[in-house]
Write a protein that binds this DNA or RNA. Sequence first.
DNA 1: TTGTACGCGTTATCAT
DNA 2: ATGATAACGCGTACAA
Lengths: 336, 336
Amino acid sequence: MDHITIKTLAKKLGISTSTISRAFNGSTDINKDTRDRILDYAKKHNFLPNHYASNLRDKKSKTLAVIVPEIVNDFFAQAINGIEEVARKKGFYILLYRTDDVFEKEVSFVNYLNNGKADGIIMSVSGEANDHNYMRALAQKNIPVVFFDRVYEDIDVSKVTTNDYEASFEATEHLIHTGCKRIAYLVVNKSISIGKVRMQGYVDALEKHGIAFDDDLVIDCSQDEKINYSIIKQVLEDIKPDGIFSSVERLAFATLSVCNDMNIAIPNDLKIVSFSSLQIAPLLNPPLSTVTQPAYEMGIKAATLLFDALEKKGQVVPRKHIVLKSKLFIRKSSGG
Amino acid sequence: MDHITIKTLAKKLGISTSTISRAFNGSTDINKDTRDRILDYAKKHNFLPNHYASNLRDKKSKTLAVIVPEIVNDFFAQAINGIEEVARKKGFYILLYRTDDVFEKEVSFVNYLNNGKADGIIMSVSGEANDHNYMRALAQKNIPVVFFDRVYEDIDVSKVTTNDYEASFEATEHLIHTGCKRIAYLVVNKSISIGKVRMQGYVDALEKHGIAFDDDLVIDCSQDEKINYSIIKQVLEDIKPDGIFSSVERLAFATLSVCNDMNIAIPNDLKIVSFSSLQIAPLLNPPLSTVTQPAYEMGIKAATLLFDALEKKGQVVPRKHIVLKSKLFIRKSSGG
DNA sequence: TTGTACGCGTTATCAT
DNA sequence: ATGATAACGCGTACAA
């Protein structure tokens, strides 16, 4: 028995294919005995209806596409966990795609998804401020999308973000309270998405406390670890900030490395707070003060929003924007 | 133009569906001009052949299933990166599934994959020593499988692992060289897969150096963080080992936490080495000595093996078992 | 080089 | 409660 289909099954059992189909779809229009007979036989022979044939019939792939910049990052890993949790309950599976923050990869994958491969998409965008028309094509095909954390403002879909502005304000203010006068802001791209909003919180906190904003203290970093290391090293040597507010976990790690190598004492010589969802932040040397986003909950919410849209397909579903709260954990790196 | 198919496209362009199909499949049997005309029109209207219909036709889903115990773990995250890297080059996509080390989830997902949803499967097994017949069903359907890191010995598929025995031996020996006399072995399940092999390396290293094996020093932990914390705390209080060899990263983190809380000085009072692919291990307090597996390479190899099998479908492909080398990084937690 | 026509495996509709 | 059948969108053998 090489290749079982409901057709061959039907022949073997002397029933019609429709009845077989009904057995698998929990139809009530079927005798319990025949159903059991079918299911038993199927289980014994390891048969399951072909997913692609079903999908071709009813245009439901039971698949969610998840697009994230990276996976080796507790924030995204936890968010994926949240998404998967919800998806699993709904009997959905997850197609994962990693963009490495490369815009072209994002575009290519989104275009690919245009063909109905997934019923919906949850994504944290690569963040480039380019032409976003490839996103609009999805709307035409009625494929719902939910952004989380990093969003495109000009695309009208549901979104799940955190109170980045307030959290950044609070983090910066905390550094000021501990006595910092020259706080550097580490960012990968200050002109887009989260980099921009978080910077505004930083800027406004400075202003509130009468500290002049200094453009030299805004440190634009890259995706490359080694380059970041040199950039930060140079900053610590030349500009000598007494505080660091990092909008991205990775840059805080680089800072810790540099400090290790340069023997800069944290928190005495330099205080650090960073956005980070790293679970072992308390185990770092020194324990890292973090603005921690509720990554897992964000995943849950994003998936929930997506299923809301999915279940009301055809109807006009109002976009929602859910804003969750981050939490500031003050640890030793900022004098806690 | 709500719903485009190659049929509607054919009508619009006044060509037949076969020609359209040819245009998309890079057939040479087609005039370059017609091809361009078709592709241009398609791109303009955002058309892509329906993936499910194609798959139904030629039984190629261009999808790989990846099954891992967890995602919030640099080892698995990096391995997934490696897998994705290869898959991407081959034009494949990844269906991700997380088992949380729950055997039933693994079985359920594997059974689901039986229906041709994915062309192949790469997995790190949940590790329970149960009946593995659900795995055999895949072989019948000609769906190739590759195990990585955690494998079932009794299932005949290609495997990618690391030299766990030697690495464990070396790590334990290192602890002995630093003066440890009472080395505890932390493990989640000492009777299966990696837990077992790594323990053997530990046991043999003790023996080589004339240290009596003490069953009380083998600490069986759980999946639950809080329980692990209490277990380890109790061990440090009562059994008072002077060295810890942790077969799993998570347990090393728990140990660090306990030591923090109990004011146990590492490495003076206690030395630690752990299996871990954590990239920021050097930034921990103290920097953690690790046995680091080449996670990314393992992903690459596993995916490569899978494609080998995939590309020789039908033929008998000999199973391969690739063993990569882990690297011992001696850091301060073990006196480095 | 292009077109015709069938079938991939399933499910919904309509009968019975 | 069950069966016959058409249709989902595509690719390919075959014919032209």
